[in-house]
Design a protein around this nucleic acid. Structure first.
Lengths: 335, 335
DNA sequence: TTGAAAGCGCTAACAC
DNA sequence: GTGTTAGCGCTTTCAA
């Protein structure tokens, strides 16, 4: 293993000079720099991460806590993770992957050991049990998601409440008066997962304002579960002409079933989805949808974290405005 | 920040004693151990990761390289990652998440800096450019996937070749003579991704042995792409009665289209899928399928890696035998 | 069963 | 612009 001292000797300079060439923390003459860089290349030197972390008390690692659950839509989680990791490398950080299984203990462990300089948390619940810890730790953190009380925390999230409202706006604007919401699995609401609850709240409030009826039904993954849910909906509200779907695994089954039942989309029934664009555009009917900007969320979370790590930036909530793209699944309701 | 020295002082013992209590590498009297553990708890001590890594030259971190691409089925990647991370914690390791974007350089960086003690690589191509490096590095690694030449490497994978053969066996056994294979996106084959190529090879060979005709068509994600692919297949081989699908995003569209065309599954046409059980059981027709044992692959990869890290275990290929579960999507072919 | 002490490789004062 | 050096907090001989 090549050490900094060996590089220094090879280049005929002192250890600190090599260190400063690497960090750029003080000016170095062009010739010295070149000599050092040459030696580094020739010897194949790589700075030792542990020694660096010990001496500088910075690991250049950021922890990312992902959910362990299987009722969340994995591609979105994955896209966020990849965006975080990619952005992190751009700032010189690596990502430590933590699953939610350790819960708050993981925060303590990572934070206490100096393993990571900061952390990003996904799958935030309204009353998340990790929050008290985050507020007291000196290590910076960023949430992807918005808890009930974000005070003292930095959060990045889609504005889910506005997303719900936007869906109603669109359908109501087209003349739909009876809307059904096909939601995430029941467990998601039972855990008080922020995005699902807020979407519903925003949607219901706007519906009330506009005098539209909104019926919400959670739905497990799979064709059969959706079939049952759909049957119940038409049973309770036969006049339903508009659907809002916030459940990726329900999208295809829904379209398929409506078709089988002879309900044409968008002539008889309109569907708005809250899902990644990829899902919306790959469905049998191109779906009018509010996109989930997974990559942007990941990227912005990392940006915020770096700002905090560098002493800039502070506790704040950054909500991304939802955008609804009209495609082929929505049309006029009753005239 | 609490240090080991402070704990030692508080407990009235030497630093080395505290260290040995923590590592268990030498016997400690019960009373001493209790005193030390008490102090650790009272002071809220967490060993510093950097110092540990520096002194022991082991970071207790394992790198996991995941693909950056979006044409792989994310839920499987995610499930593998979670299984790896979960297993890792059980062995006292944390996971460093690397995306494929840095390519071989990531291997060099992580390996050279001592950031990770070993690594696990996903999305392995037959002629993967990272392999030469892995063979020469002293740091242990495990591939999830099987390259063309696995010599000197440790690999864990589903036996994809046997998987392909198994699908043909099943369909041929039911009397189908004309089989169509709906595969992954073209790019997956163009990159020579191991699992896709091997599945196809195994399938074709068995088809030849059994005198069955097999037509392979790659397929991009999405409803429209599948519709085009399906049309071509029936155009070229109108007598096709059996399908093998190795493309999760094609499953629902396929069933939906067959239904629309009046081809009943399994009465007119049989479908075997190669996909996670979750996909197979949630489809509108419960699919006969060969499961992708994502969690098992992740767990076993981590097991192998730990074995190598501890000096046990060595280069070897561990193939998981495929299992075909008969469900409702396959039935007798022409009589 | 325990202690003392020499590093591990790097960073960042502090000197010049 | 560059060199010297004192740690960073832990592991692990060596010695008792």
């Amino acid at each position: 293993m090549v050490t900094l001292a060996e590089v220094a000797q090879h280049a005929g300079v002192s250890a600190s000079t090599v260190s400063y060439v690497l960090s750029g923390k003080r000016s170095i003459s062009a010739t010295t720099r070149q000599r050092v860089e040459q030696s580094i290349r020739e010897l194949g030197y790589h700075p030792n991460a542990g020694a660096r972390a010990l001496a500088s008390s910075r690991s250049n690692i950021v922890a990312l806590m992902i959910p362990l659950r299987t009722d969340m839509y994995m591609p979105v989680m994955m896209e966020i993770s990849i965006a975080v990791a990619t952005a992190a490398r751009g700032y010189g950080y690596d990502i430590l992957l933590l699953t939610g299984q350790e819960g708050p203990d993981a925060v303590r462990r990572v934070t206490g050991s100096g393993l990571a300089d900061g952390m990003i948390l996904m799958d935030v619940q309204l009353d998340d049990e990790r929050l008290p810890l985050l507020r007291t730790t000196k290590r910076p953190s960023v949430l992807i998601g918005l808890p009930a009380d974000p005070s003292g925390l930095t959060c990045v999230d889609l504005d889910w409440s506005a997303t719900g409202a936007l869906c109603v706006d669109h359908l109501a604007g087209l003349g739909h008066r009876d809307i059904a919401v096909i939601g995430e699995a029941p467990g998601v609401y039972e855990r008080h997962t922020g995005f699902a609850v807020r979407t519903l709240d925003g949607l219901r409030e706007r519906a009330r304002e506009l005098g539209v009826r909104a019926l919400h039904r959670p739905c497990e993954a799979g064709y059969d579960a959706l079939a049952a849910t759909l049957a119940r909906i038409f049973d309770e509200r036969p006049a339903t002409t508009g659907f809002v779907v916030q459940n990726e695994s329900a999208v295809e089954p829904l379209l398929s079933l409506l078709r089988q039942q002879g309900r044409a989309v968008p002539e008889d029934v309109s569907v708005v989805a809250i899902c990644p664009d990829q899902v919306a555009t790959q469905a049998p009917v191109r779906l009018t949808s509010v996109a989930i900007p997974a990559a942007e969320m990941g990227r912005r979370a990392m940006e915020q974290l770096v700002a905090k790590l560098e002493g800039r930036g502070s506790a704040e909530v950054a909500l991304i405005a939802p955008e609804l793209t009209v495609r082929a699944s929505t049309g006029p309701g009753q005239v």
